[in-house]
Amino acid sequence: MSANPLKVEARGDRLALDAGRTPVASSEPGLPQRSLALRASGWLLVALVVASWVFVVSEPSAHVGDLISRETLDHGRDFLQQLAGVGEARPAYRDPGQWRQAARLAYRTLAMSVLAIGFATIGTLLTVMAGARPVLDEGRPWPRTLLFGLTRAAWIFSRAVPELVWALLIIFVFSPGILAGALALGLHNFGVLGRLCAEVVENLDRRPIRAVRSAGAGRGQTLLYAVLPSALPAFLTFVLYRWEVVIRTTIVVGFVSAAGLGREFRLALSFFHYSDVTLLVLVYVLLVFAVDATSVGLRRLAR
């Protein structure tokens, strides 16, 4: 689209040179016009939104009415009151002993997340060069191509399986606990980080890398002096970002790997200890908040 006016102008210039008259740009075909397709799609969007709502509300099996029924409101109110500990002599969130207990769990959860991102980072650093397209254009023997394919496949596989599923599989082998949860989280994030970091390497400026190579560096030295120094800051950013994601996922993995806040959360729900649930959610939110703040701070430092 944007090339069109230029073309018209160039043609106009030559007309002016050839025949000595000013070009009549407005009569030229192919001038940008407000696209009919664009307008039509706008109206289509409006029609689609209206039709969807009509369908959802009129469809009996969707139970849309239940969302605001008397019954739902009652259930909701009861649950909120239980969470707030109405009628309890001492709700969990007002008990210092319970807080200390939750803080210990939060610490273990934090440990699980650090362990998980540590596993993922080590795995990534060990495989990233094998799984990135080559930065030096010097051709590649077939074993490297094979290794590249295998690494990519491993990444895809490990990130295609969600953390929760990894955890369910791992507790068949390891006893449930922090380590099992960390492994599950680490495996999934290994695939995610591997791909993100490989992209960093592939998008590096090639000129400094070639220059170091031409200064006499071998492959390993080129990695040390050109590739890694350029890529590490970006790696760090991604690692910290994934750490934030990991801490948010620990609670779900904790459900099944029987570790940290997730486990207590499930137990409290099962035993109808609703004010315990409130406490755990509060502590969890604080933990996530602290990790996010730390990560943002560290990322700023890395820049």
């Binding site: 400094p208 006499g216 560096a217 030295q221």
Partner: peptide, 16 residues
């Protein structure tokens, strides 16, 4: 290499 200290960029000439 922009992220390296000057000294390492110079010493890269010794890598051979």
């Amino acid at each position: 290499v922009p992220s390296l200290a000057v000294v390492h960029n110079v010493l890269a000439g010794r890598l051979g």
